[in-house]
Design a protein around this nucleic acid. Sequence first.
DNA 1: CAGTATCCAGATCGATACTG
DNA 2: CAGTATCGATCTGGATACTG
Lengths: 133, 133
Amino acid sequence: MDKPGFLERCDVLCESLSEEEDALTREIVARVADKWSLWTLSVLAGASGPLRFSRVMDQVEGISQKSLTKALRQLERDGLVTRKMFAEVPPRVEYAITPMGVEMLEQVAPLWTWVAKSVGHFQTARSQFDSRD
Amino acid sequence: MDKPGFLERCDVLCESLSEEEDALTREIVARVADKWSLWTLSVLAGASGPLRFSRVMDQVEGISQKSLTKALRQLERDGLVTRKMFAEVPPRVEYAITPMGVEMLEQVAPLWTWVAKSVGHFQTARSQFDSRD
DNA sequence: CAGTATCCAGATCGATACTG
DNA sequence: CAGTATCGATCTGGATACTG
């Protein structure tokens, strides 16, 4: 089995990272896999403009207030969404995706699409595995 | 904010999935984010041939026996690696990546590379966020 | 409205000990 | 060698109640 080119290039890049950068890279990639974070980000991407907290919560079905708050804070912290507070009563907070957030989704979309298209293969593999002696 | 084309295409595909397929898709994508699973898979991809359990464990630094077993089982179940047992004493088990596993890595590599290249941006975003009033 | 604080149940993981 | 079994610490997420 030859070492594939894409893997080699990835290795070279990854090994050039400091330990701190490596840890951060892993963290960001991990966020991609997080159910709520990615869903939240794509809701903001699909909206025609900034969304209030409760509008986001409506669209991310099943999320709790606590989890949404956490997801939005993380996304904000990493510069993937912006948070704008208005000094009104009742309070209004608007979230919007950043260009970096859009870029992130663009990177994730091919992977997601590939998995979705391959879902039949995975189902087959699993049923074979589950019914082996 | 216009709905980007890539997102729309992804939406259309995702909405064509049954609830079961959707759940499986999420699960597979989640595995991508899992530290050990991806690392294990890339070790097998980088090897010049099948690897024994203990060889894999050597290369995935810091993993416990329990976690490696779990990661390998999941990868096997999804058809991303194969497991071959030899009836010898002491027992020998060899793991190898499948074509599907290679494909999976090929899908993940661009994302990983992009994150690694963007790590500086994320560091900046975080330090700004962490030092805001 | 947009959170924060608290409690609690379930999953996860490392360490350790044991086995075919 | 390649696991499985068990235990305890840790983390996570939902439900609920409360607040500026």
